[in-house]
C-alpha cells in the first residue's frame, strides 16, 4: 500500500510507481476516473498525457485537477508542441493554483503524427528551455523581457506569487546514437529536471550503463515499462508511436502465445522485478490497457 505522494516517495528513496493515463477524446471522463480508482493506494503518481501522439483530447490540466480532487497525486504532462511561451507559463501558474505540483516536460510529437496533421506546430520553447522557465517560475519570476510599462527586464518580472513545481523530463536510455541523448539529459538536469521518466526499457545492460551517468548527476530515474496486448500491437507501436521501440525478441515472445495479453502482463511484471534493484522506480505505460495495470503490479509483487 502506497502512503506517500510522488515527490516525498522519491525523496525518501522508496521504489516509486507511476502510471500513465490519457484523458478522453471528449468530455466523458468516467473511464479515466474508473481506471484511476482501480489504482488507488497502489501508485505514487498518475501522469496525465497532453494531447498524446498529437491527438486532440481533453486537456491534461483539467484531468489532473479532477484526479487531484479525488485524492490522487497527478503528474501534469506539458508539451511544447501546441503553446507558445505565454501560454505555457500561464498554464503552469494555473497548475500551481490548482495544487498540481508535479510537471513532466516534453517536446511533444509533431502534429503530422496525430489527428490534426494540418495544425501549426509551435515549439516556441524546447523542453530544456521550458524546464528553465519552471525553475524561474519557482523563483517567483517569469520569462518576460520588459515590464508592462515598456521598461527592459533582465531577469523577468516578479510574480505576485511564484510556483513550487516539481519538474521532471523524459530521457531515452536506448536511443541510438546514445551520446546526443546523454547531452540533452545533462542539459535537462542543469535546467532543473529533478526526476526522469524514461522511454520503455528493454535492454538491461544498456540501462545499467545509462544509470552510471544518472547516478553521477544525482537524477532520480523511473524506468519506462510498456504493456502491449499482442505482437501486432507491439508492431503497431513500433511503426506509429514516435520514440517507442519494442525489440523484435519481445514481439517474437508474444507471437505464439494463446493469450498474448496475459503474456504481456507477465513480461511487464517481470521487467519491473528486474528494474527494482537498478533505479528509483518505474513508469508504466499501458496505452489503452490501463485496466490491467493492477495485474501488472500483482505480477511484479508490488
Amino acid at each position: 500500500m502506497v502512503g506517500l505522494g510522488f515527490q516525498q516517495a522519491l525523496e525518501q528513496n522508496q521504489f516509486v510507481i507511476t502510471v500513465e493515463l490519457a484523458p478522453p477524446k471528449g468530455t466523458d471522463v468516467s473511464r479515466m476516473l474508473a481506471c484511476a480508482e482501480r489504482l488507488k493506494g497502489r501508485v505514487h503518481g498518475i501522469n496525465v498525457t497532453d494531447n498524446q501522439s498529437a491527438v486532440m483530447r481533453l486537456g491534461s490540466l483539467a484531468a489532473c485537477h479532477l484526479l487531484k480532487e479525488r485524492g490522487f497525486d497527478p503528474i501534469y504532462q506539458i508539451t511544447c508542441r501546441d503553446r507558445n511561451r505565454l501560454a505555457l507559463e500561464s498554464d503552469l501558474l494555473s497548475a500551481a493554483v490548482l495544487g498540481i505540483r508535479n510537471v513532466l516536460v516534453l517536446t511533444g510529437d509533431h502534429p503530422t503524427a496525430g489527428d490534426h496533421p494540418e495544425a501549426k506546430a509551435v515549439y516556441d520553447l524546447d523542453s530544456t528551455q521550458l524546464l528553465q522557465v519552471i525553475t524561474r517560475l519557482n523563483q517567483g519570476r517569469d520569462l518576460s523581457s520588459r515590464s508592462s510599462g515598456g521598461k527592459p527586464l533582465v531577469n523577468g518580472a516578479t510574480l505576485a506569487g511564484g510556483t513550487n513545481l516539481f519538474a521532471g523530463a523524459v530521457v531515452n536510455p536506448e536511443a541510438n546514437p546514445l551520446e546526443p541523448q546523454i547531452w540533452r539529459f545533462f542539459q535537462k538536469v542543469a535546467a532543473g529536471a529533478r526526476f526522469f521518466q524514461t522511454q520503455a526499457v528493454y535492454d538491461l545492460e544498456r540501462f545499467d550503463q545509462f544509470m552510471g551517468y544518472a547516478r553521477e548527476l544525482g537524477a532520480k530515474i523511473l524506468a519506462g515499462v510498456l504493456l502491449v496486448r499482442s505482437a501486432a500491437a507491439a508492431r503497431y507501436v513500433n511503426e506509429h508511436v514516435p520514440g517507442v521501440v519494442v525489440p523484435e525478441r519481445v514481439v517474437k515472445e508474444l507471437e505464439p502465445s494463446a493469450n498474448p495479453l496475459e503474456a504481456g502482463i507477465r513480461m511487464a511484471g517481470q521487467q519491473i522485478r528486474h528494474l527494482r534493484e537498478r533505479c528509483d522506480g518505474v513508469h508504466i505505460m499501458a496505452i489503452g490497457l490501463e485496466e490491467h495495470i493492477p495485474a501488472v503490479l500483482d505480477e511484479a509483487g508490488i
Partner: peptide
Amino acid sequence: CSKGLLNGPCGGMKDGRCEL
C-alpha cells in the same frame, strides 16, 4: 530539425533518423 529544436534531438529520433 522539423521541430526547430535548439538543444539536441527529441525523443522521436530513431537510429539517427527523424520522427517525421
